[in-house]
Design a protein around this nucleic acid. Sequence first.
DNA 1: AATCATGAAATAATGTATGATTCATGTTGA
DNA 2: TCAACATGAATCATACATTATTTCATGATT
Lengths: 240, 240
Amino acid sequence: MTTRTSAPRRVVPRRVEKETAATTVYHALKRDIVRGVLEPGHKLLIDQIAERYSAGTNPVREALNRLSSERLVDREDLRGFFVPPISLEDFRDIVHTRCWVEGKALEESIRNRTEAWEDAVILANHRLRNTPIHYFEHTEPGMPAPDNSIWEERHRIFHRALIANCGSRHLLRFAEELMLLSERYRFISMANTHPRRRSIEEHQAIVDAALAGETVRAVEALQGQYLLTLKIYEETMSDV
Amino acid sequence: MTTRTSAPRRVVPRRVEKETAATTVYHALKRDIVRGVLEPGHKLLIDQIAERYSAGTNPVREALNRLSSERLVDREDLRGFFVPPISLEDFRDIVHTRCWVEGKALEESIRNRTEAWEDAVILANHRLRNTPIHYFEHTEPGMPAPDNSIWEERHRIFHRALIANCGSRHLLRFAEELMLLSERYRFISMANTHPRRRSIEEHQAIVDAALAGETVRAVEALQGQYLLTLKIYEETMSDV
DNA sequence: AATCATGAAATAATGTATGATTCATGTTGA
DNA sequence: TCAACATGAATCATACATTATTTCATGATT
């Protein structure tokens, strides 16, 4: 019996997971708002945004509407869309809420700890440790802002890994939102902030406590880091 | 000097606070999803929704995009929008997260307590007490579901009042989202659930503890109520 | 027979374009 | 100070094109 050569099998993934224009704009806008490229308080003109991201007005409006429900853009009926203004008061609220939400999530993560979770935390921490941060100590006019996007990405992954085991989808969602809002303040104030050289040790302290099952110590270390960021921000604000 | 008869003054409020079509559809959809009019898992066809709410497709898409960021509709690129399915697991998560979030918010509310807040709580409780609930004990086929929308509204106001003094805009936002998600489950399971005749006493217990400054007792009473709701839901689920 | 693969048709999401309407806002003039 | 006006922009409806998904019928394979 002759078996013919089998027809060419589909090797590519069954579904390419295509993104719609609205989603592309959504991610691009999100990124630019978080990174401070679009300045706080700035009005977001539909046509400008559409041209900027090479899209039509419909996808742009959809993206803006999504972001407005995440508090990454302000929306007012018949007045349009705006990059949310920043304020010390707002940042205080974000940090304190974040301390509480992530504190709770970390506590639960530790309570439910598994080997897989511990592995993920260790790995994320290891990767973060080995990613250099580029400070700009010599603030010369012509020098572009250093690109720390890899570090930023791994930093996010690290913090997500810590709380990923909490078991609550909704808590994780809130934490994610607060992380982004918080990150925006970090980016915006980056030019002024004192470089955080101790962050490696701080992260290690959290990991050590978490893996040892010392919930209170881990939560305090985590919150301490966030509160320190707030303190630095408050100081640089008063410098002005 | 002659003062002419002044031109007709604008008597209507300076700003009518006009709503755009997108916002109208947003509220209508939100309401119908929370109240279970639109069934869990149901596909939301743009054209149908547009016709149902007498709007164009654009406002509908905007409303759906807003709701998708609040987890009141599911969205999938190129596949459309859906009413989120329900599950016991999801409801458990919602209730537990809500216990944490509102527990914390109530704790902070009590810590920061002022006379104005106490007044608001007392008032909201009073109004809720005096609003009758219409059960349908006699489940006859022809009988329409009883309209408790006034009680529902005041119930929401009561729970908002309790935590309104927490000082955190973001915590309140999360609590609001969870309240809506939770309310959906209450509506959907209403036909099956045992009427909650003790709710007046339960609310009173929370108020009494809160006004007495007994944080722990107040928080436990609040969480106890939510956990009881979950328990009842779990039982009715297993009845099937 | 049951399962799987193929492909065409139907369905629906998405994007583009255009024009009309309404509102917000700033300016002018009495 | 206040009303009328002008302008820019948001909002919306609509029509149409494109693309992806879903459905369904058909034929092949096991």
